[in-house]
Design a protein around this nucleic acid. Structure first.
Lengths: 200, 200
DNA sequence: GAATCCATGTAATTGGTTACATGATTCA
DNA sequence: TGAATCATGTAACCAATTACATGGATTC
């Protein structure tokens, strides 16, 4: 009868209609293949970062509600681990969420907040800000180019098959590659524009 | 001597080295021109959304720490308001933050989490998801096109002047316009690609 | 008569980060 | 000897949303 911790919607006996984005994300990871909490954090690292301190409690909740199950796996030479997999109910609520109306995307970006007040700064300093930003995004572009190339080399067939999870994976890597490239190009165009204007 | 509420870093007498992103954003708004809390929420609406329940307490903190001051303004026919402006210290900490190393940007997007598991869905449903997404971004593009056109019409000189705040404003509107356009184009290209693949 | 705008806030909850805690193994 | 990897968590805090509370004026 141990009822550890439950959210408000749960306490009154009603099951929560919507899980958190992270819960759905974790279900999605486990639907591809069973993993430990530690492995989930690594998998999410580049796509949808989350700390262990958030992932472990979320896994416990998902298990309590019957959306995932776990088995303890003994290992030699390294710590034992607990490997989670999705249940049928877990799969069902994930797939009914996928395709529903998504919340509008949100972004937090200190740089843009800085640019908001950049009119108070010296033009040369503003150019320097964009140059640092450009370096940052060029590095990201490079790393996603490498990821994309790896996927093409390692899973040439899989990434062509819409019902294989490598297909979704490749699609999302390409999107990140392109949007980082776009961000870098914006920086380049602004730098040129600012330099033009500074001549006058 | 009323010390209402203070954050941890403050209680030991040390002043907080970094304010929250929202605090800097609010200082940036007030540096352009003095406003009420209500007006700040409206100004931030399209650029960096924040609710009144977050803005009012933040304004109170900023005032307590001496970064903004306020005057009560009596109005007839509508509720009275409190108009905030930035102090010299407030301006100083904002401008020392602008140009410092920004935190890496973060984004939360349900749609991408859905696409992560879309390989389990029927191809026609995936296409439908992208089509709804495309409609959403096309609308955004339209609205930012209108904003940009308005700025060009209303402030033709100001948006050319790097030290005028309308310049920063116009720069950020153009960026949003372009990135939404890019997002829409990505949807279009994926839809074409998926339809191609569905023929086989 | 209902909805929206103006205007300011508090309380409760969720989402997410930082810091803390532990401990074996491998690699430079 | 010191750092990194594997592995799982708790406690405290900060950031942000949702819901609640109030109330006059204007617009449909």
């Amino acid at each position: 009868m141990a009822t550890k911790k439950r959210r408000a919607a749960d306490r009154d006996g009603a099951s929560p209609s919507r899980l958190s984005n992270l819960s759905y994300q974790i279900l999605g990871v486990l639907l591809r293949e069973p993993r430990s909490g530690y492995d989930i954090v690594k998998e999410l690292h580049s796509f949808r970062p989350a700390k262990t301190s958030q992932v472990y409690p979320t896994l416990a909740e998902l298990e309590e509600e019957g959306f995932v199950t776990s088995v303890d796996v003994d290992q030699k030479g390294r710590p034992n681990k607990r490997v989670y997999s999705v249940t049928e109910t877990g799969k069902a609520i994930l797939l009914s969420w996928v395709g529903s109306e998504p919340e509008p995307p949100t972004q937090r970006d200190d740089f843009l907040t800085m640019i908001y007040s950049s009119w108070m700064k010296k033009p040369t300093e503003v150019v320097a800000m964009f140059e640092r930003r450009l370096v940052y995004f060029d590095k990201l572009v490079e790393s996603f180019e490498r990821s994309a190339a790896e996927l093409r080399a390692d899973f040439p067939q899989e990434i062509q098959d819409m019902s294989n999870w490598h297909f979704s994976r490749y699609l999302l890597v390409l999107r990140r590659l392109e949007s980082n490239r776009h961000e870098a190009n914006w920086c380049r165009s602004v730098i040129v524009m600012l330099r033009e204007r500074m001549k006058d």
